[in-house]
Design a protein around this nucleic acid. Structure first.
Lengths: 127, 127
DNA sequence: ACAATGTATGTCGATATCGGAATATATGTC
DNA sequence: GACATATATTCCGATATCGACATACATTGT
């Protein structure tokens, strides 16, 4: 078995920097003709067509014919799986505390929480 | 030029499903020996070592020797770029405001397109 | 019908992958 | 030292990639 095809996954499709660049362009919500993209990206037209083809296969963009042009549009919700996946790990880096410290803190917190059972009633008397 | 190396990018490293699976395992914050991973994932040891090597090269995991074992640990903050990237597009699929706006724009586009050419499929039109 | 424009497709070369198998490199144990 | 365990490294075959280039296809205008 070899490397997975770029079209098997949103993850694989988006791994290519050029493709991310193109997604960035289309993120303005407008429809983009292939040539509009070619002008902005430093790539020849066939390369752009292929990248758009990959993005289309995984549903990240949709095409519609308009005259002799093909208008590509971003289907951003297809990126959601990536967002959700990464979001799963967000809690592991938020706060500047490292994970190890977090674990230590967690244990300390548990202990303190137990100890505080005796101190349940509001010593925080501001008011 | 060929496909980018899996070690060039967090995006590329994470494009591989097995690697994401391994990341999922390590997300409990503990240190994992290679064999611990081998037992959980349906892969031979060399394959696992290689995957861990890739993840290590991009900094997603770190290693530390302990006896004859190599303990791997997740460095979740290295996934942040992916989260941030995807987050940029979150607003495009959540919230009704952008959705409505997008819809309106799309309808305008469609109308313009229709005006520009009423002939989609070989039907000899007027003009 | 012909030319021009916009886009897709096919071929090619260089490169890298992924998993398996075999082997090498520690490290620990008797 | 001999041996077992844990892991890394190397070689292999099959497969895909990506960009360049050439070319085909499609649509529009004259």
């Amino acid at each position: 078995m070899a490397r997975a095809a770029t079209t098997t996954d949103v993850f694989n499709a988006v791994a290519e920097p050029r493709r991310r660049e193109i997604i960035g362009l289309l993120s303005d919500g407008r429809e983009w003709a292939v040539n509009d993209v070619v002008v902005r990206v430093n790539l020849a037209q066939p390369a752009v067509s292929k990248h758009l083809g990959v993005l289309r296969e995984v549903g990240v963009v949709t095409v519609v014919k308009r005259g002799q042009q093909r208008m590509y549009r971003l289907e951003a919700e297809r990126l959601k799986p990536i967002y959700e996946w990464a979001k799963t790990y967000e809690k592991l880096w938020t706060g500047q505390i490292s994970r190890i410290k977090q674990r230590a803190e967690q244990k300390a917190m548990d202990r303190i929480a137990r100890e505080n059972q005796s101190d349940e009633n509001g010593t925080r008397g501001d008011k």
